[in-house]
């Protein structure tokens, strides 16, 4: 993320990072998660799933902020995010 100046408390704030889980065989390839991800974390993969659709894949895994929007939007219960406490904003 770009700032016009470095916030004074950058070191103190832990920005939550998320890890995306995709249940590939449930996906019907509507693309809502890819289109509406606010951080553009996802993209279409080239592989086919069991039903012949292209499921999403994580393109920029470090960008995910665990906002759960893909999870809310997915009509197929095929994607969800969990908090990933490995990385913080300070370390990026």
């Amino acid at each position: 993320m770009k700032y016009w100046r470095e916030p004074l408390d950058t070191g103190d704030i832990d920005v939550v990072r998320g890890k995306v889980h995709i249940i590939k065989d449930r996906c019907k390839g509507c693309g809502y998660c890819i289109e509406f991800c606010p951080r553009e974390v996802l993209g279409f993969s080239k592989e086919f799933n069991k039903k012949g659709y292209h499921p999403p894949m994580v393109v920029k895994s470090s960008e995910c902020l665990n906002c759960h929007y893909c999870e809310l939007l997915c009509p197929e219960f095929a994607i969800y995010t969990v908090a990933d406490d490995v990385e913080t904003e300070a370390s990026v």
């Binding site: 249940i23 449930r26 019907k28 390839g29 509507c30 693309g31 809502y32 039903k51 659709y53 999870e71 809310l72 939007l73 997915c74 009509p75 197929e76 219960f77 095929a78 969800y80």
Partner: peptide, 25 residues
Amino acid sequence: KHPLEDLIRVERIPHIWCPGCGIGT
């Protein structure tokens, strides 16, 4: 496991709604 797994009848998934249908959301 999806967080809503305890509320859906997983054995009936995938549901009948078309790809891109908003009902699932």
